[in-house]
């Protein structure tokens, strides 16, 4: 598979300021050295718990945040330090769908203008052509034409998410960051939107970075899955492989924690001690060691590298 996106050594630190002169006193290390590749037409799942930096990673990759360090290549082109105007043609090809279907649509704009916004910015076609293109896009995501002249507040959460998806695909991008796109929706609607994502990928040849805290969903939609903990990727493998043969102790806990809708299959839940440490001062060595059920002395001293444990199954653990 040809790679579409490559990220190496990516870091995003947010400064914490204090005092009346806003001096920087520390940094939140939201993304702390991530290497990734996403192949064309692939879905790479990204799972992790709240605060692990997965959303920041998604936003930094499409440069909604300026990276602190590292490089981002889109189709072998370094886009890390492109200026806003040089970035514009690249933006056309990488889009994002957000979690909150209520906050992601401008309440003062009609659906038609929301979906057409990208076409207008990139100077596509005349008004009539644009209108036709918007109508067609809405049809693709399963909305009727009469949605055009209505405002976002007239739609349900699921329909709003369809509008947000329409906005993202209107420019015919190659790559879409899906940032928890279904977490705010009801179960029955979640399934509809998952199906829509799968369908769009087949029809339009899209590549996804699919971010979610829900392992069931990520497993379902992804070809490969990366697990993130405190700003770092700690395991990355083909979807099936990761679930059947998790190597990192954190991944094992995550998988065992997912509730299964089958009362016959009482699972063995491993409970973790403590909470996720603060990304301001992450623990020395392996960031997971204070909560790890199998940690040894080495884990608190040396940070494990993300290494290939055989046939492309990457893991960052001394003991795996």
């Amino acid at each position: 598979m040809k790679e579409l996106l490559k990220v190496s050594g990516l870091k995003k630190y947010f400064p914490i300021t204090s005092g009346i002169l806003s001096r920087v006193s520390n940094y939140v290390k939201a993304v702390d050295g991530v290497d990734l590749t996403v192949g064309r037409g692939e879905t790479l799942g990204l799972v992790g718990e709240s605060g692990c930096g997965k959303t920041t990673l998604g936003k930094t990759i499409i440069k909604l945040h300026e990276p602190t360090e590292g490089e981002i290549f889109f189709e072998d082109k370094d886009i890390t330090n492109l200026s806003a105007s040089r970035m514009r043609p690249v933006r056309k090809r990488m889009q994002i769908v957000f979690q909150d279907p209520y906050g992601s649509l401008n309440p003062k704009m009609k659906v038609e203008d929301i979906v057409a916004e990208g076409l207008v910015i990139h100077g596509h076609s005349s008004g009539a052509e644009r209108k036709a293109a918007v109508g067609e896009t809405l049809h693709t995501v399963g909305l009727r034409e009469d949605a055009l002249s209505r405002y976002p507040h007239e739609f349900s959460g699921g329909q709003r998410q369809r509008i947000a998806i329409a906005r993202a695909i209107a420019l015919k991008p190659d790559f879409i960051v899906c940032d928890e796109p279904i977490s705010a929706l009801d179960v029955s609607v979640q399934a509809q939107i998952i199906n829509l994502f799968i369908e769009l990928q087949e029809r339009l040849g899209l590549t996804y970075l699919f971010i979610s805290h829900d392992l069931r969903v990520v497993k379902h939609i992804s070809d490969r899955v990366a697990v993130m903990y405190l700003g770092k990727i700690i395991e990355l493998a083909a979807s099936k492989e990761l679930y059947e043969n998790p190597l990192h102790p954190y991944t094992k806990v995550l998988i065992s924690s997912v509730p299964v809708a089958d009362p016959q299959r009482k699972r063995e839940t491993t409970l973790l001690k403590g909470d996720v440490p603060s990304p301001i001062n992450p623990p020395e060595g392996c960031a997971f060691h204070p909560r790890c059920p199998i940690a040894v002395a080495k884990c608190s001293r040396e940070e494990p590298e993300l290494r290939d444990a055989g046939s492309g199954h990457m893991v960052a653990c001394h003991l795996a």
């Binding site: 392992l215 992804s222 998988i255």
Partner: peptide, 14 residues
């Protein structure tokens, strides 16, 4: 509607 950890990348019966 709930994806199962066992199957993958098929349409769900929404």
């Amino acid at each position: 509607s709930i994806p199962d950890l066992r199957d993958s990348k098929e349409k769900l019966d929404a």
